[in-house]
Simulated scan of single mutants.
Amino acid sequence: MKKLILIVAVVFALFSCEQNDYLVDGGVSDAKVEMTTMEFIKSHPQLDTVAILIDRAGLADEVNGNSTLFVANNLSVRRYVDKVLTELRKEDPLAEYTINDIPTDTLTKYMGGYIFPERITRDDLVKEGAIYTAINGEQRRISLEPQLDGETGYGDQLSSAPGYVYYTYKDGDEWDEWDNVTNDTRVIVRTSNIISTNGIIHVLQGSHTLFNFDIDE
């Protein structure tokens, strides 16, 4: 009986360690990637479709400049393609639409909204946000907002509330009061502050639709 209790205790201890491993600080990770921004997104299986679209838009040089890229992932592209296809099939049930069907002028016009001609890092950001102008002339409000303790889901396991970077579209001709901004125009950054050999990369959440198509349609 004592042996059984000992075995159960050991198994429980090992299981507990595995369950809480994500709480163990593994040290400071290196944000630098030894490649250009384009090389990085081309090599990443969740971002490589966006790299193709940037090339088609003729914006690779801008991405590889001293710039910041807020990059949508492949799921965001798929969401865009699916929404366009849904609209087309209202007129033609047999319609087809793929990334190859996205017009080049659409890519050139809207892909530039993710590229900023300056380095924007987490250290540059504040809760209230600042307005930045993308290379296509569109404005975005970029902010670093702390998550309230009750919203993190970690209880008292964190010594301070984590901060999340947000990439926010302007809804209308003027910026609304900050408190009136809705989640329809805000995109959370899933991974921030990746430092390439030429600039900064922030990866947007996959729930984002490329070009924020929900707003534009």
Rank of each mutant, 00 (worst) to 15 (best):
L47P: 04
L47N: 03
D48E: 05
V50T: 13
A51I: 07
I52G: 04
I52D: 09
L53M: 15
L59A: 07
L59W: 09
D61W: 00
D61G: 06
D61E: 06
E62G: 02
V63C: 12
V63K: 02
N66L: 05
N66Y: 08
S67V: 01
T68Y: 05
T68D: 11
L69N: 10
L69E: 12
F70A: 04
A72R: 02
A72F: 03
A72G: 03
N73R: 08
L75V: 14
L75W: 13
V77Q: 08
R79S: 08
R79L: 12
Y80W: 00
Y80V: 06
V81L: 12
V84D: 03
V84K: 07
V84W: 01
E87W: 03
E87Y: 08
R89D: 00
R89Q: 15
D92G: 10
P93G: 09
A95V: 06
E96R: 10
D101T: 00
I102S: 07
D105I: 12
T108C: 00
K109P: 01
K109E: 13
K109C: 01
Y110D: 05
Y110W: 12
G113R: 01
I115K: 00
I115E: 03
F116A: 07
P117K: 03
R119L: 09
T121H: 02
R122M: 04
D124R: 07
D124H: 08
L125I: 10
L125T: 02
E128S: 14
G129K: 06
A130Q: 13
A130G: 09
I131P: 04
I135G: 07
N136R: 05
N136L: 01
G137Y: 00
E138S: 13
Q139T: 12
Q139N: 11
R141D: 12
R141G: 08
L144R: 14
L144N: 15
E145C: 10
